[in-house]
């Protein structure tokens, strides 16, 4: 049963990612991105990573996508007139994706990976939390600084008043 779910969500993720590559309408692309991320979340759950899946929904779909859609609306490019992609461009894009994907898949086939670990771990979240505050305490704190500075940096740039004399 899980196999069907896996191939369904995996296929959906790839279809919607492909749609982003070929669509002209940027808002449609943003919604396709939501769909891709949701499908990827499903893959995380199938790989027994529930906590990462929840984080993915909260941060990616709740945060990043909202930001992207804000960006689309504020830059007023929803009509898509300014980002027409020519047929040649789409062809190159498709060819590039195909070539790179086959190269990577060839590499994967030579990796000898085996099967996904099946057993789900009931205290996984507890172990994750414990790791974050013991073994992974340094990256945890570094991520805190990173977020703080990203916040300040984004605020500096966004709050900038456009001065006429600077133009």
């Amino acid at each position: 049963m899980t196999e069907y779910f896996f191939y369904f969500f995996g296929g959906m993720a790839l279809l919607s990612a492909g749609f982003i590559l070929f669509t002209r309408h940027i808002l449609h692309a943003a919604f396709a991105l939501v769909l891709t991320f949701l499908c990827v979340t499903a893959l995380y759950i199938l790989a027994n990573a529930e906590f990462v899946a929840v984080t993915q929904i909260m941060i990616y779909i709740g945060g990043i996508i909202v930001l992207v859609i804000f960006g689309v609306m504020l830059t007023n490019e929803m009509s898509g007139k300014n980002n027409e992609s020519s047929a040649v461009n789409r062809f190159t894009g498709g060819a590039l994706a195909l070539g790179l994907a086959s190269l990577l898949c060839y590499g994967i086939m030579r990796m000898n990976l085996g099967l996904l670990k099946e057993a789900s771990d009931p205290d996984q979240v507890q172990r994750l939390g414990e790791s974050l505050l013991t073994d992974f305490v340094l990256p945890f704190e570094v991520a805190a600084i990173l977020l703080l500075m990203a916040l300040i940096g984004a605020a500096v740039i966004a709050s900038d008043k456009l001065k006429k004399d600077q133009e």
């Binding site: 940096g153 500096v156 600077q166």
Partner: peptide, 25 residues
Amino acid sequence: LLIVYLSIELISIPSYVLAAFHFNK
């Protein structure tokens, strides 16, 4: 590897902001 990734980002993100500090075109 995790620290390599995080610290490269810790260098990059302030760099992106500082590159814009003239705030002109």
